[in-house]
């Protein structure tokens, strides 16, 4: 899968988000090994030190764990993965709410619109 990196944001943040996404969507499964820093850097076409930094941050958050022998694996804590997923969902919702408020909708209107849009889709 391709790594789409924007040119105007720090690379490190974007790699972090991408790996998080891969864990949440199950591309990297709970309890399984993830590719090495070098492999991931080559795949993404980014500097290995930047990739290292992103993985270290993910380790700190607990989403991946360093293994004694070598490499890293995705946490076995499914609850943590679920929480990360929820956190990302809230971020999306906040962004969405911000934009809708700019368009002049209040909360009730937004909820009503959402239901309406979903209803139309299902028809």
């Amino acid at each position: 899968m391709a790594w789409n990196l924007d040119s105007d944001r720090p690379i490190y943040t974007q790699i972090l988000e991408e790996i998080q996404m891969r864990i949440i969507t199950g591309q990297y499964k709970s309890g399984e090994k993830i590719p090495s820093v070098r492999e991931l850097a080559a795949q993404a076409g980014v500097n290995p030190n930047t990739m290292q930094k992103a993985l270290t941050e993910l380790e700190r958050s607990g989403l991946v764990m360093a293994q004694r022998t070598s490499g890293r694996m995705v946490t076995e804590d499914l609850e943590m993965i679920r929480q990360t997923r929820n956190k990302l969902a809230y971020e999306q919702i906040n962004d969405f709410m911000e934009k809708m408020k700019k368009l002049g909708f209040d909360k009730e209107e937004i909820v009503a619109l959402l239901k309406q849009a979903e209803g139309e889709k299902n028809e």
Partner: peptide, 15 residues
């Protein structure tokens, strides 16, 4: 560093 430039300037090194 590239990351410093991107972070502090909000733009790519190229730009």
């Amino acid at each position: 560093t590239v990351e410093n430039i991107r972070e502090s300037k909000g733009k790519s090194v190229d730009t």
